[in-house]
Design a protein around this nucleic acid. Structure first.
Lengths: 81, 81
DNA sequence: ATTATTTATACCCTAATAGGTATAATTTCA
DNA sequence: TGAAATTATACCTATTAGGGTATAAATAAT
């Protein structure tokens, strides 16, 4: 079972943006329409999530999931499987 | 039911990169370890997919899913729900 | 220190993804 | 042309994500 990774790009992005707006996890889940539990799994870096749920949250920040060159944080995490 | 969108950033990326390397869908599924049917759903823009499966394919191209500002193609598609 | 708020973990249930396979449509190439 | 290869669609099943909720831990505020 792949390990969770709080430092993956998606988790980091959501946590930062949410805090920038001084929102609680509950408020974010409420305004975006996803479950509170999902916001938590998202921010804590659960390995396997559904893209449209993530995009449902990202849309609130004017963002969406797209392919990008692998980040250092991810590269580091790849070794630890 | 959300409509499929062949022009979403992920589908476009995979199709282009695969063709650049002159690989068939079967070869891509075989080398990345995901199902052939998944590669097809991916390239044809199925709305809801699992992130780790997508990343399993993107890794082959040195990429991963990250949040990015919404593209025009996506913005156009948003209106059509 | 105490309380209130926020975040994290655990459990059950339903719905939907991904896989496999078979078949049809489309494209490629001799 | 016609055959082979590639891509697309359809059906069935097992696995698992996501929702809800309850509880525990951690953080913030007074």
């Amino acid at each position: 079972m792949k390990t969770w990774n709080r430092n993956n790009p998606i988790a980091q992005f959501i946590r930062k943006r949410r805090k920038d707006l001084n929102l609680t996890q509950f408020e974010l889940s409420d305004t975006t329409g996803v479950g509170l539990r999902f916001v938590r799994e998202l921010e804590q870096g659960k390995p396997n999530l559904m893209t449209d749920k993530i995009n449902q949250v990202l849309l609130f920040f004017g963002h969406e999931l797209t392919p990008n060159p692998i980040s250092d944080a991810t590269r580091r995490n790849l070794g630890e499987q």
